[in-house]
């Protein structure tokens, strides 16, 4: 049985790197990524699971890192936007003008990447179901829809 009664050392597997970090059990993964590991790509937008700006991937699935304790994460494969580079979805977001201020973008991209990985033939309803998890306040979502569809449909 795992017992963590105070500040503890844990090791997180992030973007293929083992990252030891000292945490308190009540700290969220988002807080640890940003405050202790310098991975500020995941953004705080609501700390309440409502906006999706902090989305990362846990074992391939999209996860709002504000809804997960750091101590739940050891043993799992964590991917953050910093671990993606030059992927089709990133290029597609650029080409389709799928962001303006860019604050929601890492969260959207991680959610999209997970969708592409796990559901490459996702029909429109599934795309909508997944992408409803993130809020973008700048675009009217049209460009984001085009960006994800162009990657999924190109496959």
């Amino acid at each position: 049985m795992l017992k963590l009664t105070g500040t503890t050392n844990i090791t997180l597997n992030i973007n293929g790197e083992k990252r030891p970090v000292t945490v308190r059990p009540s700290e969220t993964l988002l807080g640890i990524l940003r405050g202790k590991l310098g991975l500020t790509g995941a953004k705080p937008g609501c700390l309440n699971g409502d906006c999706g700006a902090c989305t990362v991937m846990i074992d391939g699935k999209p996860m709002k890192s504000c809804l997960m304790l750091g101590v739940e994460a050891p043993g799992k494969k964590i991917q953050t936007v910093e671990g993606l580079n030059g992927t089709p979805i990133q290029r597609s977001f650029i080409e389709h003008f799928a962001f303006q201020c860019g604050y929601c973008t890492p969260g959207f991209i991680m959610n999209c990447q997970s969708l592409i990985d796990t559901n490459p033939n996702a029909p429109d309803e599934i795309i909508e179901e997944w992408l409803k998890s993130n809020i973008c306040r700048c675009t009217g979502y049209e460009e984001i829809e085009k960006a994800i569809k162009s990657v999924l449909r190109d496959k």
């Binding site: 049985m1 017992k3 308190r24 059990p25 009540s26 969220t28 304790l69």
Partner: peptide, 17 residues
């Protein structure tokens, strides 16, 4: 951000829990 600390336990069986 949770403004308080708690202990965290992850038991592996019902009886442990």
């Amino acid at each position: 951000m949770i403004p308080f600390d708690f202990e965290y336990y992850r038991p592996e069986s019902i009886s442990e829990a």
